[in-house]
């Protein structure tokens, strides 16, 4: 146990900042655009892995995040699984499958993006739709070794819909 913090004076006033000129509708916030991109595709074609790799290679991960994924991968008896950077649930990691959609922000060359990982398994299509509906752009990922799979026309239709 650390030491208990000191008491504060009775006439306490919090940190307070006068409003900027221009009132409630004043312009603010550096980011004017934030593009949302969803990655869709067949189960096991590597959507989460692609995003995890992208986050790692662009240096977008906070300290310790990759190490935590490494540790989780070891506990599941596999080499570093980049997908674990997004698939946070134990159930997802144990089965190495995405159950629910994840939305994660990252910045690259001064531009902000939101990248959305969508599950590929047909059982979780409602979660895929939830993720896809929030996106403005989509990446359809196809494993070249396996080619186009049966569930992908659905993904494409959903992407056009949204």
């Amino acid at each position: 146990m650390p030491q208990a913090p000191k008491p504060v004076p009775k006439d306490y006033i919090p940190a307070f900042f006068p409003k900027r000129q221009g009132g409630a509708r004043a312009a603010g916030g550096a980011e004017e655009v934030r593009t949302s991109i969803v990655v869709v595709g067949h189960v096991d074609h590597g959507k989460s892995t692609l995003i995890g790799r992208l986050l790692a290679d662009t240096g977008s991960l906070p300290e310790g995040k990759l190490e935590a994924a490494e540790k989780a991968s070891r506990e599941e008896g596999m080499p570093l699984e980049y997908a674990f950077l997004l698939d946070a649930f134990l159930e997802e990691q144990a089965q190495n499958i995405t159950i629910d959609t994840t939305r994660i922000g990252f910045r690259y060359k001064g531009q902000s993006f939101e990248i959305i990982d969508a599950p590929g398994h047909r059982e979780f299509i409602k979660n895929m739709v939830t993720g896809a509906a929030a996106a403005e752009e989509a990446i359809l990922l196809i494993d070249a070794h396996e080619g186009l799979k049966e569930s992908r026309p659905e993904d494409m239709v959903f992407c056009f819909l949204f």
Partner: peptide, 27 residues
């Protein structure tokens, strides 16, 4: 990373539990 999988309106059971394996669609 578990909050990254949340919904804007996210139901909880009578036991205050989050059924994260079966979240409702939201769009």
């Amino acid at each position: 990373s578990t909050r990254a999988k949340e919904r804007y309106f996210s139901p909880r059971t009578a036991d205050n539990e989050w059924e994260y394996r079966d979240q409702p669609p939201e769009f």
